[in-house]
Simulated scan of single mutants.
Amino acid sequence: MIIQAIRSMIFYALFISYTAILAIPLGLYSLVGRKMAGWWVVKIWYLGNLFLLRWVVGIKTEITGQENLPEGPFIIASKHMSDWDIFALLPATKGRPTFIAKKELLDIPFFGWCMQNFHTISIDRKNGQSALPQMVKQGKQAIARDCRIVIYPEGTRRAPLDVAKYKWGLAKMYEALDVPVVPVAVTSGLYWPRNSLILWPGTARAKYLEPIPSGMELDAFHHLIQERIEPVTTKMLMDDIDKGIARTITPALQARIDAHRH
């Protein structure tokens, strides 16, 4: 564990430095430049971070199901367990990403300015339900620009095998934007646990699932998106656990594992 902790500290130092080096010039440009410029910088950023994860802490990346990505604009609805999910999903946006992120992230100097450059949809959680109309409005604008919107339906990172808590924001966006939704299952939480300073070696996986076409009734879609993502995510996580993982299995994680075995 000590060696992995050291490797993780090195990764975080490189990750923060690398992000700052790229974010400062692009952030300054974003204050005066046109929107959606600088995709090449973003590509360098996510490829560089995947390289650091692979060779510093030993986290490999495996993406499957790309054949399920439709043409044109659509919504990518992903399970969210770590920052790896951001790096892994960016290639699917084809250079036109629109992430839905909390307002606090966009207020960060340079990094937040970069996010605004890519039409990030800002959510002010303090406004509660009143924030939804603004999110839908920005979502329509993004779709009109042929963007691909990335949203994490639970609104925050969740621990592996934790009880799902899907919010209604995705369903409202789906209803209003009239575009397909591509569900995504991930296993990244087994290797980059939330709120953990230690990253663990292994293969983090993301799988694009069959897209849900537009036009479904709101309640039916809200239930279907969970029925698509959760069983696949659980199977992928349990498969990795059964094969053996390097991370320490905490009592909380063991309890969730035991619950899914019965």
Results as ranks from 00 to 15, higher is better:
T98E: 00
R247T: 04
I21C: 12
L90M: 12
P109A: 02
R54T: 09
D219H: 15
M173Q: 07
S30E: 01
A5W: 13
L197F: 14
K103F: 12
P160G: 05
R205T: 10
Q129A: 15
G38W: 01
L170R: 04
R194T: 07
W113V: 10
A176D: 11
P183F: 13
A131G: 02
K79I: 08
P211E: 05
F110C: 01
Y46S: 09
R145D: 14
G27H: 00
F11A: 03
K235Q: 15
I249F: 06
P70T: 08
M81T: 10
I212G: 00
E154D: 10
I100Y: 02
T120Q: 04
R148G: 00
A159S: 11
P25K: 08
L105K: 07
P109M: 02
Y152W: 10
S188Y: 07
A23K: 01
P109I: 01
E175I: 03
Y152D: 02
L22I: 13
E175F: 10
G215I: 14
V232H: 05
K235W: 04
Y18L: 11
K243A: 14
Y46E: 04
G95D: 13
L105N: 03
G27D: 02
F15G: 01
D239Y: 04
S30Q: 01
I151L: 09
R7M: 05
L50I: 10
L224E: 15
K60T: 06
L31I: 09
L197C: 08
I16G: 11
Y18C: 06
H119S: 15
A159L: 13
I16V: 11
M216N: 06
V41Q: 02
F74T: 03
W200Q: 01
V179S: 07
D107V: 11
W200I: 00
I151V: 12
D242P: 03
W168G: 10
L105R: 03
I212V: 13
R261K: 14
A206R: 03
C147F: 06
E71C: 07
K103H: 15
V163S: 13
I249E: 09
H260S: 12
L14M: 11
F11P: 04
V182Y: 02
I21E: 09
Q134H: 14
Y152G: 05
L47Y: 13
A23R: 00
L237Y: 05
V163L: 11
S122Q: 12
V232N: 05
T93H: 03
Q116M: 13
Q129Y: 11
A101N: 03
G202I: 00
R54I: 02
E154C: 13
D162Q: 14
K207A: 12
W168Q: 15
L28W: 05
S82T: 13
T234F: 02
Y166E: 11
R54G: 06
L52P: 00
P160F: 04
N195F: 12
I149M: 07
A246E: 15
